[in-house]
Design a protein around this nucleic acid. Structure first.
Lengths: 248, 248
DNA sequence: CCTCACTAGGTACAGCGTACGTAGAAGAAC
DNA sequence: GTTCTTCTACGTACGCTGTACCTAGTGAGG
């Protein structure tokens, strides 16, 4: 679920200095070889954190909570994850690793492939409702996110667009899917909230201060369209926009 | 900066019960008339919180900090803002109120108007870098967000699309602009982070595990395109997609 | 063997959101 | 004018957070 654009570096890779502590968790080796074998792995830690987030929401994901879920002491977690930020990075990348890319292998039809990919993505966001609110804040750059990016580039190759444009397309599509998932999430909020909202908007529309809003509501009185159909409809338009030639 | 879709209610407004405490801050009257005059207003509170967030980041926005900035006791703030969430709502709506709609009055050319609106939006997001990460999480429904929505509907009226489709377009455009602002933000991160990232991506590309990514990087070695040009280019495509007829 | 980088985990601290209680001010009712 | 009621202001306190720092033990490299 990455939303990254590449930095325009000509990849003159400066390997991290031995003494320095890299900011990016992906630059830290998971294991150095010396000392006792770690009792946990990044994947198991991410899995534990994801389980907590899925069950009780992202707010419940605290270092203490995750450590306890692993049966470890709170501070032991800091041997694996120097900052909580990095725990979130691990979680996002683990979710990005849930895709089955063999089932999503490119068919040659770009649009179909992207549609399937977006549906897979929406499914993942529905499984892990906390993800959508997180990806916008952090660029996903873990190995699984890179794998995803690579797959996206493979799928969009037949479009004939260049790499940079396809990465823009990736950002566009990811953004759309996340936004949709987030909308679904708020739409599924509590009944009290729903009722309040309806009342509030109704009164706002009636106040006369928002004439166009009122008109839009008046004409949109029908039954709610099938949510999946709404998604598909918008998705098609976004795909069209994303694959359009970059001409101005 | 709202990203709302309307709930499909036929606006049978149930006024909030007198005894109940509404969840939505916009349903709480700012002033009830009884008791001493409040020393602060929602706007002044939001302004103080925004000043803190602009200067020191969203993490620095705590109830204590904002109260101190107002010269009030910490717990006094809870008379105005029952939960911190609501403080964030106030902040977002205050930013949504920064637009000068007279300068953005509809010209009749939908695309031009949307382009100008998006640029205004990007400017606001650059002024307040913490906004983009927040709007995806919360539907903006304050009076200023509604005003923005109403303006968007007015501007897109010549498109001939119905209300629901235009609200979808609004969500699409908002999402895009936020995403772009967020990208700019991470791209402007510290030099150390930049260097690490470049090295990491370079090594990842060289590892052979991400062939398409490597290819994309190889062809994208040129100078970075003017950021504003990139925005404009993508914006045009998003506008096209947003205004396209909803046919499948 | 020794050595030393590593792991595990306890303690401690500053800061957070906020429940609760008290004191006083001002409109409403008489 | 007096009283009643409801509001505002704000201090204290609790449970939680991320994490700096310290100790103790472990196991591979020399």
């Amino acid at each position: 679920m990455p939303s990254s654009n590449p930095p325009n570096s000509s990849s003159t890779a400066p390997a991290p200095q031995p003494g320095e502590v890299p900011e990016l968790i992906w630059l830290r080796p998971e294991r150095t070889g010396r000392g006792p074998r770690p009792a946990h792995s990044r994947t198991s830690i991410a899995a534990a954190a994801i389980a907590v987030a899925d069950a009780e929401g992202l707010d419940a994901v605290s270092m203490r909570r995750v450590a306890a879920a692993l049966g470890a002491g709170t501070m032991s977690l800091y041997n694996y994850v120097p900052k909580k930020e990095h725990l979130l990075d691990l979680m996002l990348d683990a979710v990005a690793g849930e895709y089955d890319y063999t089932a999503l292998a490119p068919t040659g039809d770009c649009r179909t492939d992207l549609r399937r990919l977006a549906h897979e993505q929406l499914a993942a966001l529905r499984r892990h409702p906390w993800v959508a609110g997180l990806v916008i804040a952090r660029p996903g750059l873990g190995p699984n996110a890179l794998r995803y990016t690579d797959h996206f580039l493979a799928v969009t190759e037949p479009s004939g667009l260049d790499g940079a444009t396809r990465l823009e397309a990736l950002a566009l599509l990811n953004g759309f899917v996340c936004q949709y998932a987030q909308y679904e999430r708020t739409a599924a909020a509590g009944a009290k909230w729903q009722a309040e909202l309806a009342g509030y908007l109704g009164r706002a529309a009636m106040s006369g201060q928002y004439p166009h809003l009122a008109a839009a509501f008046a004409t949109t009185g029908g039954p709610p369209a099938d949510p999946d159909a709404v998604f598909d409809r918008s998705l098609n338009r976004v795909i069209t926009a994303a694959l359009a030639p970059p001409a101005n």
